[in-house]
Design a protein around this nucleic acid. Structure first.
Lengths: 192, 192, 192, 192
DNA sequence: AATGAATGAGTCTTCATTCAT
DNA sequence: CATGAATGAAGACTCATTCAT
């Protein structure tokens, strides 16, 4: 009955799905998960409500997908070329993290909010933990390579610091001294 | 003239109000503001839904009251005797902050969540800002007294660090190396 | 136990009751019966909600009492000295009716609204009918004395006219040409 | 592209919407606006409460739509062919008005009730005023053409009279001498 | 006589989800 | 693949009424 080839269909499917995920992400980040309605997502994505349920089982499934994509993206951040020195790695990691903080504030805000409500979004919990762990492991490795004494503890400290900066920037916006913080932290952690 | 004396009434009022605030606080902290229903608060507080509106104008008013109580508590934390040396002040501040993180995790979680959703609870925004400012100012002063070069920037860093630790502990719970972090940070900031 | 004499008590009772009736009347007239809350009446009357239920069985009972008082007042309007000529009677009746329209607009508005919702205020219905009948009978008598051919029909017409004017004035307020209408109608119905 | 054709949808929409409007109208007229619940409208219309909000933004929006439909109907009443003499026009106007009073008593009752509560439904107020004005203007013109001395005042009188008759009939129902009134008024205003 | 704390049914409204087409 | 009409449970909030004192 359909005049479309399977390939076309697949492409359409993926595009539509992505439109929904993008719309959902934007709104979740801006308004929060609970305050964002399926109707609003449908509107922003330019599709019908029904179609959303064609692609996703529930509102939470959208969130879950968004989360997966965020994780994939996070993994990319933490990957670098083989010829990088430990200092290069740290520099790039910090730079990219600060870039994320500045440019994807909404994303960060959303992640924090979700991470802080384990009971409500229990099936995201394992994913969140995995993200944290992955990040911590990478930090530990880098810090060890850089010759820190207690790389594990130092990794927690660095992680907390970056989380705190994200929070500060997400809360205060432009009033937060993001650039200065970046400079200071780069100086501290990246031997020049 | 009144059958119950004004004192009796006042006491009843305060008790009931506090029951509602406590229930609201617990649930807001655990489930988030948006996901907590008035019905749930009423159930937990052991009162009727109607009574809640006898004491509070709206759901947001409950939140606001909770917030005020949290602020009062926060102000106490930041007060210390006159004969304290700068190091004493810093030591006590950090100790009390870590204690807060450990013992009042729910409160901390709630504050972060709220701070991160500026648009939704705009009338809390000013209060949150006040808290932040107060804390930052105190940090700056202490760090200056301790001889730090850039007390302001350092204050932001310390603030971010503590926020990040709160976040980590709130997310991971006992799995978070809170004690070790405390020790490390005390060593860093409090000259012994 | 009470230091008050029975007389004092009676007086207090009547005064309080009247305060409630007055407050209720004002609010019912201004906001409508359904939109007026017992709490609002209590506030305006300066008494507690509980006291209202000490004097009245229900919200509707207040309305009913208000109605009775309005009827008593209406009866007075239609009573005149024995030495009045038919023209005197008509003149005074019309004058007082116009005065009522102008000065007690709220009262009139309330009566119309209630009269128009028989299903809702069914136990007021008989009272309303009695008012209408009484008025019509008086009109018929006066019009017959004045020599009208079809006094009954003419009474309905005059009644409708006055009701319509009340409605117009209640709706338009000062924009309604009440004075001119009064003059015209007096000329028509009162031979001079 | 759509499974139901747009025409089908439009038809469904209009039908359902009209069912809601009809149910709302009946109940508003009988019980009053404030005393009619959305649940009652849904029940009478045979739809779910939710669907009502799919079609109308609020309870007041239903009322507003009802009103608009009533106005459209009213406008038709006041239009007549070009070759009508002034007497023809007046005759037809009165006839149609009486017909409205008799057959659309509920509509009339609702309009009066709403007109009498200016503060509550303020955004209907302008519409009501427009209706009144339109009607008055038409009356004035007709009465002038018929040679009345003070057509404006006479228009107000005629308007009041018809309003009063509507009220009487709406209140008393069959007990009201509607036919006789009609005959009398026709004789008075339409030269034969 | 009087208060006001307390209740619970009911109000308008929202929204995730289903389903006929 | 796609639509949007329809549902029903739940949400915040109101209010007439009761009751202990």
């Amino acid at each position: 009955m359909s005049p479309r080839t399977p390939e076309q269909n697949k492409k359409i499917r993926e595009q539509t799905q992505q439109k929904i995920v993008d719309a959902g992400f934007t709104l979740f980040a801006r308004e929060g998960y609970a305050s964002t309605s399926i109707a609003a997502i449908a509107r922003k994505a330019g599709v019908s409500k029904g179609l959303i349920y064609h692609y996703f089982d529930s509102k939470e499934a959208i969130l879950s997908t968004i989360f997966d994509q965020m994780i994939d993206l996070g993994d990319e951040i933490l990957d670098f070329p083989d010829d990088f020195t430990p200092a290069d790695k740290m520099r790039q990691t910090l730079q990219e993290t600060f870039q994320f903080i500045e440019q994807q504030t909404g994303k960060g805000r959303l992640m924090i909010t979700l991470a802080l409500q384990p009971e409500t979004y229990s099936n995201l919990q394992s994913k969140i933990e995995r993200v944290n762990e992955t990040q911590t492991v990478k930090y530990i490795e880098m810090l060890r390579e850089l010759g820190h004494q207690q790389p594990e503890l130092e990794a927690y400290r660095l992680g907390a610091l970056m989380d705190g900066i994200l929070m500060g920037y997400a809360t205060m916006g432009e009033a937060y001294p993001l650039e200065k913080m970046k400079k200071k932290i780069m100086e501290d952690y990246v031997p020049s």
